[in-house]
Design a protein around this nucleic acid. Structure first.
Lengths: 352, 352
DNA sequence: GTGAAAGCGCTAACAT
DNA sequence: ATGTTAGCGCTTTCAC
C-alpha cells in the first residue's frame, strides 16, 4: 500500500489540504477545534506521515545536519562525541547524516558535495583528537569545528581546554604534597600532531611555578603513547638517583599511565603509597580497571559534541563568528594519588 | 547568492532542462558529445549541484539509509560497525542517517517515524552486542538487523558466529596440548543477556568432546565481565587442588582475561609458561597492550556492518528473507598461549 | 474559518 | 538529437 498523502487526509476529513497542513503543523491561526480533531482522526485513520522530502523542497529547510569526521572507527572516544551531537540534534528536531572520511581528502570533498546536494541546514566538521586542520572547500559558512580548529580561522570551534586540564592534573599532585612531579609526554611532535601535548605541558609548568617548584627538565620525558611507552619512560624516571627521582607522574594519556603501573609493580612499588600517578583521557577500559583505579582527567567529548550541534543549529547563541570555545576537562578522582612517601622508596633496581 | 538550479544551467548552455538532466545523470541516450561538453561547462560555470531533495521527491528514492542503534556511546566496538556500514553506503552512493536511541523505546519509535518521514530507502537496526530483540513497529519490511536477531523472525540479520568462535578459541588451547581448560563465563544470564555466553560455551564443550576431554563443571565458572571479575574467577580456579587446576583459561572477554593476568602475576605465574589464556573481543586497548599480548578472538564488527548495509541496499543478494547470517570470528594469535607446563606449577597460594 | 492555486527543483513521458 | 510539460507532496499567499 502506497504512502498516504496530504490530499488523502483532506479527502477523508472533508476539508482542504490547506487545512490539513495547518493542523499538522500546529499553526495557531483560525481552524476550529472541531475541525482540528476531524483532521487528526482522518490522518490517523489513513496512516498519514508528512513527507519531509516534499516539505524540504517547498521550505528549503531540511532539518538535517551533516557531521563529517575523520576517524570514527579507531577511537573509543568517537561515540561520546556523536552521542552529544545526536542528542542535541534530536532535541531540536533534526536528523544527522554521519560521514566518516577515514582521513581521505578525496572522500572528504565527495562527502561535502553530497551533503550540500542534500541541502543540509548545518554542518559539523569533527576530528577524533584535538588538532589544527585546513578547512576543506565547500563547507557551509556557519560550519562548526569539533575537537579541532581551522588553521586559517573563519569558523567557530570547540576544543578541550588542555592547558587547564594539564594544570588541574598537576594540581592534584601538588596539593597532595608532591614536589618532584614528572610529566611523561607523547613523542609525537609533528606539526600535525596533537597540540594537546604542548598545552598540557604549559599547564604543568604553570602549576609548578605557582607552587614555587623549579621545573626539572629531567622529569619531562617523552615516549610513544602506549602502555609500552609509558613503562619505558617510567623505568627511566625510576632509575634516577634518589634525590631526583619523582614521587609522582602525570601522563599524557591513560595508556601510558597503565605502563607506569606495570613498571612500578615490577619494582615492588605500591601505587599510591610509593608513587602517585595521574592520567589523561579517562578511558573507561583502562583507567577504571587499573588496580588501584586511576585518577585522570576526562576529555569532555559528550559536552563538546552537544555544544557543536547547538551552535550549528543556532539554538545556542555564540557571539563571535570566529571564536574557539574551550571546554573544561574535569578531573576524575580515583585512587592513584596519595601523599608522597616520607622518604623516597627504594625500588629494587632492575638495571642498577 | 542563491543555489543554481537546473534551469540556470539550461539557460547558460542554451539547451532545455531535459538535456541538462540527461547529461548530469549520465544517461546513455541521444545527446551529442558536443552538447554534453557545453552542458558540463555551463554547470561548472554557474556552480550547479543537483538538489537531492527535489530529485528525491520526483523519483521517490532518496538514496539515504537510516541506521538505528541502541548504544553508540558506550562501546568501543560501535565505531567499527559504523565504519563498515558507512563504507558500503558510500560505495553505493548512499548517505546514512545515524540515530542512537540510548535504548529508550520512546526515542526509538520517534526515530523510526522520522526516518520514514525522510523516506529512507533502507533501514538497519543495530545492537551493540549480540542479542535477541523485539522488532519495533514501523521498520521497513526489508530492514536488516545488525548484531542482533528479531525474536519473532521476519527480517534478515547478521551476528557473530559465537559458537564457532568459542570453539576456535578452545581449539587453540587443545592444539597446544592442554587438557585442563577452564571457561570463565559472564554471570549475566538474563533472558535479555548476551546469547554469546551460551553459544561460546557450546563451542567450548564441543571442542573438548571432540578431543576426548571430559568437561569438568568445576572449570566452568562465572563472574562479572570486568578485570575484577576475571581476577576473582582466576583466583578460584588457581586455588583448585593440583590435579584439578587448569593449565589454560578461555575467557568470555578480554577485560576478564586482563584480570586473569593480574591474578597469575600476583602468584608469580608466568603467561604463557605456567598458564595459557585466550580472550574474546580483541579490544585493542586491552588485548594488544597486555604483557605478553593476549591471544583472542575478534568480533567481526566491520564485516558485519558492511554486510548489513550491502544487504539493505540490495547489492548483495541474500536469498532468504528471514535468515540469520553468521559471521566468522577470526582468532588473533598473539603470545598468551603455549604448551602446558610439564607439571602443574605451584603457585604461591595467597589463601592457603 | 476555510479553500484554490502557485511553485519549490527535479525527472520522465511524450512531442517534435 | 532535443524540447515541452506534468507532476512528485508539500507550504503559503491570496481570495472568499
Amino acid at each position: 500500500m502506497a504512502r498516504a498523502r496530504i490530499s488523502d487526509v483532506a479527502a477523508a476529513a472533508g476539508v482542504s489540504v490547506t487545512t490539513v497542513s495547518l493542523v499538522m503543523n500546529d499553526v495557531e491561526a483560525r481552524i476550529s477545534e472541531e475541525t482540528r480533531r476531524r483532521v487528526r482522526d482522518a490522518a490517523r485513520a489513513v496512516g498519514y506521515a508528512p513527507s519531509s522530502v516534499a516539505r524540504g523542497l517547498r521550505t528549503q529547510q531540511t532539518r538535517t545536519v551533516g557531521l563529517i569526521s575523520d576517524q570514527i572507527a579507531t577511537t573509543p572516544f568517537a561515540g561520546r562525541m556523536l552521542a552529544g551531537a545526536q542528542d542535541a540534534a534530536r532535541e531540536n528536531g533534526h536528523l544527522v547524516y554521519l560521514l566518516d572520511t577515514g582521513g581521505d581528502t578525496e572522500i572528504e570533498s565527495e562527502a561535502i558535495r553530497a551533503l550540500s546536494a542534500q541541502q543540509v541546514d548545518a554542518m559539523i566538521y569533527a576530528c577524533m583528537w584535538h588538532r589544527v586542520v585546513d578547512a576543506p572547500q565547500g563547507l557551509l559558512p556557519q560550519t562548526v569545528f569539533l575537537d579541532c580548529r581551522p588553521a586559517a580561522g573563519g569558523f567557530r570551534s570547540v576544543v578541550p581546554d588542555d592547558r587547564a586540564g594539564g594544570a588541574a592534573a598537576v594540581r592534584q599532585l601538588v596539593d597532595a604534597g608532591h614536589r618532584r612531579i614528572a610529566y611523561i609526554d607523547t613523542d609525537d611532535r609533528g606539526v600535525d600532531g596533537p597540540i594537546a601535548s604542548s598545552l598540557r605541558h604549559e599547564g604543568y609548568l604553570e602549576v609548578l611555578a605557582a607552587a614555587g617548584i623549579p621545573a626539572d627538565p629531567a622529569l619531562h620525558v617523552r615516549a610513544e603513547t602506549s602502555a609500552h611507552g609509558g613503562r619505558a619512560a617510567a623505568d627511566v624516571l625510576l632509575d634516577l638517583p634518589d634525590e631526583q627521582r619523582p614521587t609522582a607522574v602525570f601522563c599524557f594519556n591513560d595508556r601510558m599511565a597503565a605502563g607506569v603501573y606495570i613498571a612500578a609493580h615490577r619494582r615492588g612499588l605500591d601505587i599510591p603509597r610509593d608513587l602517585s600517578v595521574v592520567g589523561y583521557d579517562d578511558q573507561q577500559l583502562i583507567a577504571a580497571e587499573q588496580d588501584p583505579p586511576l585518577t585522570t582527567v576526562a576529555l569532555p567529548h559528550y559536552a563538546m559534541g552537544r555544544w557543536a550541534m547547538e551552535v550549528a543549529l543556532g539554538v545556542r547563541a555564540e557571539g563571535d563568528e570566529d571564536a574557539t570555545h574551550l571546554m573544561e576537562c574535569p578531573v576524575i578522582r580515583r585512587d592513584s594519588v596519595g601523599p608522597p612517601p616520607a622518604q623516597v622508596a627504594k625500588p629494587n633496581r632492575r638495571r642498577a
